[in-house]
């Protein structure tokens, strides 16, 4: 009788142990699912958050535009030395997009044959120049991309050296529709 009671008790304990084990297993199961799901979400988020940086292409277009209106058939645009020279109008650039705090920057320096600076046209934040130097060495999302070009040009019978630096630091933005 005593043996029977003991056997029943052992059977009961085994049943409870199995139940507890199953519960523990299902908790573990959901933990594993959560971890797998979390990594899938993380992978997709990392994939989609990667941005294509086109700043260097944009800087190149900016410099090309500036060269196109400052140099005409190998000669320097004669209006460039006029005090009322409107670079934005001449180069088809939208003035409101430039200036301090803008994502655009350019520096046009014209040197004469004695390497003396005779004209300088700068627009945008001066911090671009130092950031561009850093950006060349370190690849970072928030550093601007810059393009620099040097040209030898004539105006009348004088020779000039034209240095153009263009920089762009545009990030683009997500738009929410309300």
């Amino acid at each position: 009788m005593l043996l029977l009671e003991r056997r029943v008790e052992i059977m009961k304990r085994k049943t409870w142990d199995r139940k507890g084990g199953e519960k523990l297993l299902s908790l573990w199961w959901f933990f594993i699912l959560g971890v797998i799901g979390g990594f899938i979400v993380l992978g997709v988020v990392i994939y989609y958050s990667a941005e294509t940086n086109v700043n260097s292409i944009e800087a190149s277009i900016l410099v090309d535009k500036l060269i196109g209106c400052l140099i005409q058939q190998g000669n320097l645009n004669s209006n460039v030395f006029n005090s009322d020279f409107d670079l934005f109008n001449e180069c088809s650039l939208d003035k409101k997009m430039f200036g301090m705090g803008s994502f655009l920057y350019f520096n046009i320096s014209i040197y004469d044959s004695e390497n003396k600076l005779v004209r300088e046209l700068v627009n945008g934040s001066g911090i671009f120049e130092s950031d561009c130097k850093v950006g060349r060495r370190v690849s970072g999302k928030y550093f601007p991309s810059c393009i620099s070009e040097n040209h030898l040009v004539n105006l009348g019978n004088k020779g000039y050296k034209l240095n153009i630096l263009g920089g762009v630091n545009q990030l683009g933005r997500k738009i929410s529709v309300n």
Binding site: L93, F103, K174, I175, V177
Partner: peptide, 20 residues
């Protein structure tokens, strides 16, 4: 001067151009 592309109902993406 912003080009906007909206493929989703909730929003999209905008990028600016500088030419006049």
């Amino acid at each position: 001067n912003e080009i906007r592309v909206n493929l989703n109902q909730k929003g999209g993406y905008g990028y600016k151009y500088f030419s006049d």
